[in-house]
Design a protein around this nucleic acid. Structure first.
Length: 435
RNA sequence: UCCCCGGUAGCUCAGCAGGUAGAGCGGGUGGCUGUUAACCACUUGGUCGGCGGUUCGAGUCCGUCCCGGGGAGCCA
């Protein structure tokens, strides 16, 4: 395509005021008032308005407006002008319009649509300003996680997605045939492999998709979701609590600093996010149960928290709340017992405020071979597939701890979303695999 | 897996007591020199989720299945 003027992006239009530039993008609003016509263009960096005045551009280009439909692609060339009346604050006095592709009748209108319809058109829904804003926040969260760990000398370790066994025997797994040699499962956590890597590199983390085949149908569940997990040799539960607290406050600060515009577009009240500062409130499970009972919840010591309990607990504090030392029998086989009370596990959950619930789960891991062997038996797990994992306790075992943070739940919280399905580009849900 | 709600035009919905299927938006045509989800006029648009039943007659009542939404459980 022949360009007669420099190509600009809408986000940087202010640097081109007074100059003639070309914008490339898609039509989002088309209005005509006879001899004056308006095209609102989006290019992925923002929106800007082009004004077409009869006689100020070739007649052919002026007439091409008539062919435009919503989401048609085109280029606009013109002089940049600051204009308070224009969406985005800048407009182009169009001297040239080139059609690239005329879109068919676009299904998504600037009006209310049902969730089902929007999800069926997720590939197009992503173009809407709100979805773009969410995806930019997600991008910031992911980058913050990587930066955080690199600044602290954690090494990125890519753990396998196809695995021979469950990390935690209890949850259901996606099963696939492995080239006729038996079953393979989609990973539900990189943790076990990360533990091996921690014994090699000290501090490690992984960042990738995880899969849970549970038939969960709630606002906080996906069947495929992203998790950042960290594992560190010689870390105790106390070290772990400090690390999770640091990570979450780091993420929140980064999003507030770099994604203010997006949060404003999402109409996210940032006051509760600005209140997220260290130290976070810490409660033992036993204390949490007592607090819930005070609030009138009917539950007994030993039961895990349900959705209602989590919501209530997270609403009691401005910052995320750290709940530690749950009853061991409600938790996974690899968690170290509390030496002060063997009925408790040295574990942690972090609950996001405003009712968002669990975003982090972690624990100190069993370091002793005999204890781990007994656990496998206790939980009814076969020993053979875990032999490699047991080796970690045979060759220089050390205390170590790790955790995982759910990306979508974190993004949903930061953006103030009602459901995690909007926090991932293409959500995989119980009854949704398309698009 | 269980409970609740829903499925009518491309979209969002209305449709009373069973009696010839409606609106707004979108699409199309025309008008308008500053529009902001523009406005005005005209116009287009239907396998009422599928199957079966009751009835002279079913979008409407009954049965069943499918799909979607919300919640529970389970889970992180």
């Amino acid at each position: 395509m022949i360009q007669t003027s420099p190509v600009a992006t809408i986000a940087r239009l202010r640097e081109h005021v007074g100059q003639v530039v070309t914008l490339r993008g898609w039509a989002v609003h088309l209005r005509s008032s006879g001899k004056i016509r308006f095209v609102v263009l989006r290019d992925g960096t923002g929106i800007a308005q082009g004004v077409l005045i009869k006689g100020h551009l070739p007649e052919e280009d002026f007439a091409a407006f008539e062919e435009l439909t919503l989401e048609s692609s085109l280029t606009l060339t013109g002089r940049v002008k600051a204009e308070p009346r224009a969406p985005g604050g800048f407009e182009l006095e169009v001297s040239g319009l080139q059609l690239i592709h005329i879109a068919q009748e676009y299904p998504i209108q600037p009006k209310e649509h049902g969730v089902g319809f929007l999800m069926d058109h997720r590939h197009l829904w992503l173009r809407s300003p709100r979805q773009q804003a969410i995806l930019r926040v997600r991008d910031e969260v992911c980058r913050a996680c990587r930066d955080f760990f690199h600044e602290r000398d954690f090494v990125l370790i890519d753990t396998p997605i196809l695995t021979p066994t469950a990390c935690e025997g209890t949850t259901s797994l996606f099963e696939t045939d492995y080239l006729g040699r038996g079953k393979a499962y989609l990973s539900q956590s990189g943790q076990l492999y990360l533990e091996a890597a921690a014994m090699a590199l000290g501090r490690v983390y992984c960042f990738g998709p995880t899969f849970r085949a549970e038939k969960s149908k709630t606002r906080r569940h996906l069947t495929e979701f992203w998790m950042v997990e960290a594992e560190a040799a010689f870390y105790t539960l106390e070290d772990l609590l400090a690390l999770t607290e640091e990570l979450v406050s780091y993420i929140v600060a980064r999003v507030l600093a770099h994604r203010e515009e997006e949060l404003a577009l999402l109409e996210r009240d940032t006051a509760p996010l600005k209140a997220v500062t260290k130290p976070f409130p810490r409660l033992s499970y036993t204390e949490a149960v007592a607090r819930l009972k005070e609030q009138g919840m009917k539950m007994e010591w030993g039961e895990d928290f349900g959705g209602d309990e989590e919501t209530l607990l997270s609403r009691m504090f401005a910052a995320p709340v750290i709940v530690h030392r749950y009853p061991r029998r409600a938790k996974a086989f690899y968690m170290e017992a509390d030496p002060e009370n063997p009925e408790l596990a040295l574990c942690v959950d972090m609950l996001a405020p405003e009712g968002y619930g669990e975003i982090i789960g972690g624990s100190q891991r069993v370091a002793d071979l005999e204890v781990l062997l007994a656990r496998l038996q206790e939980y009814g797990l076969p020993r053979e597939p875990f032999e490699w994992y047991l080796d970690l306790r045979r060759y220089g075992s050390v205390p170590h701890s790790g955790f995982g943070l759910g990306i979508e739940r974190t993004v949903a919280w930061l953006c103030g979303l009602k459901h995690v399905r909007e926090a991932i580009p293409f959500p995989r849900l119980l009854d949704r695999l398309y698009p």
